[in-house]
Nucleic acid binder design. Sequence first.
DNA 1: GTTGAGCGTT
Length: 292
Amino acid sequence: MCRRRNKTALESEKEEVSSEVESEAEVGEASGAESEGSDTQEDQGEANMNVFITVCSEEGGETIELPTDEDGNLTLSSLESQFSGASGLSYRPEDDEELVSVACSEGCLYPPDEGWEAYIFVCDFPRDSKRKQDDDSEENESKTNKRIRSESSDGDSETIDLIVLGLPYSTTDAELKKEFEEYGEVKMAEVKKDNQGKSKGFGFVRFADYESQLKVVNKRLLVGGRHIEIKFPKQFSTKIFIGRMKEEMTNDDLSEYFGKYGEITDVYVPRPFKGIGYVTFENPLAVQTILA
DNA sequence: GTTGAGCGTT
């Protein structure tokens, strides 16, 4: 994506370990999917912390928390996939001060000295033509969404139940549904409860359309003062492991080859080269079809 | 009457 530095030796070592775990892959084939952010490996070496950026399209509006990339930066494209038409970010150092623009170069946004977590960020739009994030359903639809739609010849744009972690114990089904209707039509929203009818603090949400799902999956929201996480359920994973790669294979080659299965969000080939790589998709169904 | 990582059926 947009790396300012190279992976540390420590990080590369970790990747190596995971290659041994899943090393039965044939050339050019994918083996073993893993869901992100959990389980065996890929736990932070140091700079790989899970930083979220609180973003809204206009001050005081609904906020969404976008995850940074491995280097703690944010790509313009991932901002744009969330807020279509956004060209950058700004923040207000103090309540009565002017907006300050976030450093941006080569399609990559860099955190202010105080860090991403110090502020709430507002999207910049070219020549002040503000767009709300719910407007991108038809005429303002983002390029990435259009691409996904054209790629989804069969079933790779269906919605699935998303798991919602970290809910306040007081949140009801109706409140959960209402919370997500900000992002699209909600087909189902359910808080899991125990025998006594008490919330277990998590639930499931199903959107009517894929675009709405894209808006929140793998992101965080603020509900009742708590950060709730929206993820694909365990059995769905978005990342595949590529074994026995040829050295001359570039990230672009991988993108091109695996691009036919769906929108790719990340391609990572550890350097120095070890014959392995990872491709992460936006949609887990892409992984399903590859591994099928 | 409490809790705070996780993975759901009925």
